[in-house]
Every structure is written in structure tokens, then in C-alpha cells.
Amino acid sequence: MSQTTPTAPDGDVTRRSFLRTSAVLATGLAAVAASLKPLFEMDDLPSAEQFMQKYYREMTPADMAVVLKRISNEVEKQYGIRPHVKDYKPMDGVEFVYALNLTRCIGCRKCVHACVGENNQSRNPEIQYIRVLKMPHGTFDLDKGDHNYAPESVPEKGFFYMPVQCQQCHNPPCVKVCPVHATWQETDGITVIDYDWCIGCRYCEAACPYWARRFNFAKPSIPKDRLNPEMSYLGNRPRKKGVMEKCHFCIQRTRAGRYPACVEVCPVGARKFGNILDPNSEVSKILSTKRVFMQLKEDVGTNPRFFYYFDV
């Protein structure tokens, strides 16, 4: 071949080589940029204020007031409702215990949906803190439980129903595995999560023997008319994508002296809640007088504050 590409002396760049190299670079960069398109459509990035927020347990009341105002503004912007967000603290001399009467539970799942409504869980994808297991009589083998039952009416003959939710353990494995201390046990026994501190690693979900922790895989969606405006920082304020959540005994209700939503909605009165340090509370009476009670998976050593009992 007689044609030769013009070449410059060693190390120099000719116009042609510059042009063809930059053409490849430009198209390559454009391709990479186009592939990142979904990143530019993200609209749930944390604000600078949220990003710089202090750790919950290091916040002064003044810091908390600023944070609560930010949360109120965010909720109002997203849902058009001005919420009442508070930071409820544990009461002195109170340790919460839950007792559930397996003889009474009929498996109607009203508690599941009352909880979703009270605690502003995402409706799609669906997040529910309570799972009701339909179990055949004569066993506590959880592998035999079915949570997808859908008969015409409950209870069904030959089965009992066992609702499972966060057991608020004395010795919670979920707290031990959290690498950033975004979840901890409070003095009234409630294990809480700081949604602004959680990094979404889901270690706690893996550590929990009760399948009580839920992860926000997608941006939660709550219809405006179903939003509960009575909110708490550690409780039911709306979560964002990529954080864990779980039952917190309705902090916004129980730390104000009220019963949790699941207790109030239970049509058969199978759910009992109260202060175990008060000898006259319902739960004290149950644990001291009822014939049988058990903690779920007692053998794993978590020592739950959630007791199942029977009327005999």
C-alpha cells in the first residue's frame, strides 16, 4: 500500500488522531451518562439539614425541636397535612409487657390493619408489623404456620391463630448486630429505630428470630386520607426508602398513657398490654394468675416481653 496515514513525530498529536480519539471518548462518556439516567431522577435525596443531623441520643431538646420542625415541614410538603410530631420519652417506673390470649384469638387480622393505619406503614409495597399464623391444633412448630389463609370466615375448626410481631426482647439480637447503633432498647423496654440514622444494611432483619423487622425496599406510599397525623420521632413518622422499621408498641400512644392500636381494635379482647412494674395492671394479673404462658422461641435466649397465654 502506498497510502500512509500522516504521522507526526513521536509524541505529537495530529489533528486526525485527536479528533478520532475525542469522538470515541465523547460517545463513551455520553453512553455512561445515559446509563446513569435513573440517578438523576431520584427525588428522595436527604436534605443537607437531615444529612448533618446529630445522633438521637446526643441531641439536646433544642436540636430535637429543630429536627421535629424539619420533619413536620417535610410531611406537610409531601402529604399536605400538618402533623403533630413529638419526641416521647420513656416514663419512670414503667416497663411495658404484652400478653396475647391464644384461646381467644380468632385470626381476623384486624390488629394487622389497625397497626398499619396507626403507624403510617407503606400500603404499596405493603409493610405490616403483625403476621397472624394459622396453626393446626396440637403443635407450636412454626413451620406448620400459614399466614396466607383466606377462608370465608374465621376461626376455622382444628386451628388456632398466633399473631407474631416484635417481641421487644430483653436481650435483642437486632440491637447487637446494628453497625451504626441506629436501634437500641429504651428503659421502658421498647426497642426503637432512628430512621434518620439507619443505613439499611438489614443485619437486624437477619438477626431477628421472629421475622419482626421490615425493610422499605421502595419509597413508601400512604394515601393522604389515611395518614395518621399524630406522630412520634421514634415511632410512626413516615419512613423513607432504604430504612428498617418494626413494631414499637405504638410509642405515640403508649408513652402518652394509652393502649396500642392493636389492643383497642381486637374484637375478642385477646390482646393485653400494660406496665409489668404495676402489680395491679392487667399484664401483672395475667402473668401471676393464668395457668399457662410462654415466650415464643424461648430457647434462643432473647427473653421477650411478649407473652402468649391460654384461658383454661
Binding site: 398513657g257 393502649y259 389492643v263 393485653k272
Partner: peptide, 15 residues
């Protein structure tokens, strides 16, 4: 004793 039947309202009778 509050053990049988439904309960609602306040667990904390002071409140």
C-alpha cells in the same frame, strides 16, 4: 381485673 374482655382508653389511670 381487666384480663377478660376488651380494653381501650388509657393503661395509665393517672392520665
Amino acid at each position: 381485673a381487666g384480663v377478660h374482655g376488651r380494653t381501650s382508653g388509657y393503661w395509665n389511670r393517672d392520665l
